[in-house]
């Protein structure tokens, strides 16, 4: 076993265990923290396979932004604690399906790539990623930016509190602020 493989196995064991703990944990905040560990380990795996830029993107977007978003929504929805309120009745069936998926994938991986030669790793510099992104994928890049903008506006529209009385109040710029503070006090 090479150094990379040993490092990878350690990282993968931590990541896999915390992934399993995440889906079986009884406390929602613990689940979110296990998710942080798993995502950080996925980022470390990117570093091991020399995908440097992607590793830092993973840390910034997932560990930094998405987990904070998830924690905020856990806080706003007052998520309860306990197995019976967090899991449904088909837990055994779901475990069966999960194990089946894992067994099928493991068999397929071993069958198709079991005898493949080890990968010789080359570092992927940020420059190369940028060149590919802005030479070959400019249009997808623009489309995805429009998608993000649409998602941003859509999230604001969906989650905004509808107040029919407020719309009659006219163009008072401070009215939404006051309404917001009332909502937090309630």
């Amino acid at each position: 076993m090479s150094v990379q493989e040993i490092t990878f196995v350690i990282i993968a064991v931590i990541g896999g265990v915390s992934a399993v703990r995440m889906v079986t944990s009884r406390n929602v905040v613990h689940a979110a923290l296990y998710l942080v560990v798993t995502l950080a380990m996925v980022g470390a795996v990117y570093l091991v396979v020399a995908a440097e830029f992607l590793a830092w993107v993973q840390v910034l977007i997932y560990v930094g932004a998405i987990v904070v978003l998830l924690l905020f929504s856990l806080m706003l929805t007052k998520a309860p604690i306990g197995r019976d309120t967090l899991d449904n009745q088909q837990r055994g069936l779901a475990a069966l399906v999960g194990m089946g998926v894992l067994a099928g994938l493991a068999f397929l991986i071993q069958d198709s790539f079991g005898g493949s030669k080890p990968i010789t790793l080359h570092q992927a510099t940020t420059e190369q990623v940028g060149v590919t992104l802005f030479r070959g994928f400019v249009w997808p890049f623009e489309v995805v930016s429009v998608l993000l903008l649409a998602a941003l506006v859509g999230a604001v529209v969906i989650a905004r509190k509808d107040d029919p009385a407020g719309s009659r109040r006219g163009p008072d710029r401070r009215a939404p602020l006051r309404r917001g503070s009332e909502a937090t006090r309630r």
Binding site: E5, A12, G15, G16, V20, V45, F113, S116, I119
Partner: peptide, 14 residues
């Protein structure tokens, strides 16, 4: 040097 099935198996577990 790292073997591909290792990475794929980690991904399958996740």
């Amino acid at each position: 040097m790292i073997r591909l099935p290792y990475l794929l198996f980690f991904s399958a577990v996740l």
